[in-house]
């Protein structure tokens, strides 16, 4: 017994080191697995609060560009509105489906990262506004990412610039589906893989979100085709997509609350259980 205690006292530093190393490696490995098991995220009170304060100051520095962007978006929406056949007509609610299928929460990016392989954004809206994990995040140009973790007032988002992110997307004109991934190289480009060779595609074609995912509504812009390769092993196309969004400069974003989501998730869960 005495010897055991002696051993522990003599090697207390080493034991402490191994213990703490164990904890930190567990945290690392957990964050590498795709499932939402991240314990430490910036969606908590401390880091969310600090980021919000810092962002409040930073915002003043690029007020002008943000205003311009909002004005451009406004103009686009106005032109849509004016070119309608009857500008005063209010859309009638579908009596069968009830309210429209998705709702939108306006939010702001308070922390943006784009220089590592796994990039996350922090937004300043959380559970109090009804944000839940797995909701899609977009802005006026295109998609941004998917909500990962939430706290009462903040949430983190898996950016599309994250090697773990995988989003269903399609080619706008031909409806061929593929998965959108990121190879971790350039912040301006993502890759669309698993597109069958049958698809007739050309440089400059538009890529939009597909209708197969619950997260994003169909036909939200992503980018345009920059280069096309063929995978040697699978003989599917690998397409380099130039993003519409500048992911290094994000301001206001919209979180999409899909009304059908709960129903679809429940349905899928039921199917898995059977």
């Amino acid at each position: 017994m005495q010897q055991i205690f002696n051993f522990i006292f003599k090697n207390s530093n080493r034991i402490l080191f191994l213990l703490l190393l164990g904890i930190s490696l567990t945290l690392t490995i957990q964050s590498h697995s795709f499932h939402r098991s991240k314990i430490i995220s910036s969606a908590n009170f401390l880091s969310g609060g600090v980021y919000e304060k810092v962002n409040n100051i930073n915002e003043y520095l690029n007020l002008k560009t943000q205003n311009d962007a909002l004005a451009v978006e406004n103009a686009k929406l106005k032109s849509l509105l004016f070119n309608k056949k009857d500008t005063t007509a209010i859309k009638k609610l579908d009596s069968l489906k009830g309210v429209k299928p998705s709702d939108i929460v306006v939010s702001k990016v308070i922390h943006n990262s784009y220089n590592s392989h796994e990039n996350y954004l922090t937004l300043n809206s959380g559970e109090l506004e009804g944000v839940k994990p797995d909701m899609g995040v977009i802005n006026d140009l295109g998609i941004i990412g998917i909500v990962d973790n939430t706290s009462p007032r903040y949430s983190t988002v898996v950016s599309i610039l994250n090697i773990k992110s995988q989003i269903n997307a399609k080619i706008k004109k031909s409806n061929h589906f593929g998965s959108l991934i990121w190879d971790g190289k350039s912040t301006g480009f993502v890759q669309l893989i698993d597109v069958p060779r049958l698809a007739s595609i050309r440089k400059g074609d538009t890529i939009v979100t597909g209708g197969q995912s619950v997260i994003f509504p169909e036909n939200i812009g992503i980018g345009t085709i920059a280069n096309i390769y063929t995978d040697n092993k699978t003989h599917y196309y690998i397409i380099n997509v130039k993003l519409f969004n500048d992911m290094t400069n994000l301001g206001h974003v919209y979180i999409i609350k899909s009304k059908d989501r709960e129903e679809l998730i429940n349905l899928e869960k039921k199917e898995k259980n059977e």
Binding site: L25, Q30, S47, V50, E118
Partner: peptide
Amino acid sequence: DMFSNSGG
């Protein structure tokens, strides 16, 4: 890690 969302 908390501030940069990087696990551990």
